[in-house]
């Protein structure tokens, strides 16, 4: 019986201490790591339509249509099937597509999660964030120091023709 009593002691100790680890979301924001992979941010002005992101995406979330001069016409992102693997960001040579820390996403139907180029201009998680800022994306924030070159190189050497 001593063991049972000791067990009761352990739980009583917890009850007396009263520590909690609940995060009172949404009043309190859950701790999101700087590297967190949330919904995408796409910059039309940066994209060079190389289609590397489309090729690497494992499940066809990204759908790009170009004209015969290989100029971009459509950039569709079906977020409903994205697995947030960040491979598109990893291979994009110009950081035109970036995964943000935004994670609150909902929709009534699957179709609402299909974004085209125009939709991507004003999706809610862009608010207060200038897509053009992607020109100087703060990569150091999530990649760490001086790895920048390495990632760029890996990306370029992988899918460049």
């Amino acid at each position: 019986m001593m063991g049972v009593l000791r067990s009761l002691g352990v739980t009583a100790k917890h009850a007396l201490k009263g520590d909690t680890f609940t995060v009172e979301y949404p009043d309190e924001s859950p701790g999101i790591s700087p590297r967190f992979r949330g919904t995408h941010k796409f910059s039309l002005s940066r994209c060079i339509w190389c289609r590397m992101c489309e090729e690497v995406c494992p499940n066809g979330t990204i759908d790009i249509k170009t004209n015969e001069k290989r100029e971009g016409e459509e950039y569709n992102l079906n977020l409903g099937q994205c697995i947030y693997c960040r491979l598109c960001e990893e291979v994009c040579p110009v950081d035109a597509i970036i995964l943000t820390q935004h994670f609150e996403l909902n929709a009534g139907t699957k179709a609402e999660l299909e974004y085209n180029m125009d939709d991507l201009m004003d999706v809610p998680w862009y608010k207060g964030m200038d897509p053009l800022e992607a020109r100087e994306p703060d990569r150091g924030a999530w990649i760490g120091t001086d790895e920048e070159d390495d990632v760029w190189e890996t990306a370029e050497s992988t899918y460049a023709d």
């Binding site: 701790g31 790591s33 700087p34 590297r35 967190f36 992979r37 697995i83 947030y84 693997c85 960040r86 491979l87 995964l99 999530w142």
Partner: peptide, 15 residues
Amino acid sequence: QEMLEDLSGQRLMFN
């Protein structure tokens, strides 16, 4: 889990 999130960017699907 939080340490892994800091490291990899996600809580379960690390990649």
